Computed example of a mutant assay.
Amino acid sequence: MADWKALETELALWSESGKQATLWWRDDDAERPSAALEQLIALSDRFQVPLALATIPAGAEPELALRVQQANAVSVLQHGFSHISHAPASERKCELGDNRPLSDITAELNQGQIKLAGLFGDLFLPVLVPPWNRLSQQVIESLPELGFIGLSTLGPRSLEQGILTEVNVHADLINWKAGRCFAGEARALGQIITHLQQRRLGEVDSREPTGVMTHHLVHDEGVWAFLPKLFDLTRKAGARWCAAKEIFS
């Protein structure tokens, strides 16, 4: 079972090898200001950890843009278009799959990109975060023509990087199958440590920062208690939290 000491040990191994461990933070499903979003931004400000807010274009409100503009280190990514699944009920949920014409999907993504750019200005990065971390290959291939510079899903990225910059998340703090609650320290830390270790040993792309994924609207007390401990320990251990503008440049 992974614990905080195991994370400290892994970060120490990074330092001993002369390298600095890097991480990044992505939070999904933003549409409007809320008490949970306030708590999220307060954590970002308190620990000086940049926050990439994956925002749903169809539901994004001007009030969200005003709040993000007041924050110290929040950037905005595009979370699909409407976060509505178009897959059959027998299949896993997917908004950007092969279940409808590609032209319909690209038209929505373009509409969403225009809306977010208008709302957030320079704080918006044309990086696609597909809902449920799923999308079809034909959608991926269409992204550069739509003006997207990056893609973020779940799991270690391929060593081969194309036109798009792919930077994924590797630790999901929510246990969706157990009632959308905190996954627990052991599981969350295990996912973080595993990716850090794989990077250090060269088993995956060592240049991809280790991504932590949160969903502020469903956080319970376990998640809110875990994040400050994670930010505090990693910073004291010499790790660096990267801003989205840096990793998707």
Rank of each mutant, 00 (worst) to 15 (best):
A2Q: 09
K5C: 09
E8K: 14
E10K: 13
L11Y: 06
A12S: 14
A12T: 14
W14A: 02
S15G: 10
Q20W: 06
D29W: 11
D29M: 08
A30M: 06
A30S: 12
L37Q: 02
F47V: 00
A52N: 05
L53V: 04
P57Y: 06
A58C: 00
A60G: 00
P62Y: 04
P62N: 04
L64H: 05
R67V: 15
Q69A: 15
Q69F: 08
Q69D: 14
A73T: 12
V74A: 06
V74P: 05
V74H: 03
Q78A: 01
G80N: 04
S82P: 08
H83D: 07
S85I: 03
H86R: 07
A87S: 14
A87G: 01
A89Y: 15
A89C: 10
G97M: 01
R100F: 10
P101K: 08
D104A: 15
A107R: 14
L109I: 05
N110D: 14
Q111H: 10
I114D: 12
F124H: 09
V127I: 10
N133K: 01
L135F: 10
Q138I: 12
L143V: 04
E145N: 14
G147H: 08
N168I: 02
V169D: 00
D172Q: 12
D172L: 10
L173Y: 00
I174F: 10
K177M: 11
A183E: 06
G184K: 08
L189I: 08
Q191N: 13
I192L: 15
I193C: 05
I193A: 05
R199D: 01
R199Y: 04
L201W: 11
G202R: 06
V204K: 04
D205T: 08
G211K: 03
V212N: 03
M213W: 09
T214P: 09
H216T: 03
W224Q: 08
W224P: 05
W224I: 06
L227C: 05
L230I: 07
K236Q: 15
A237E: 12
R240L: 12
S249G: 14
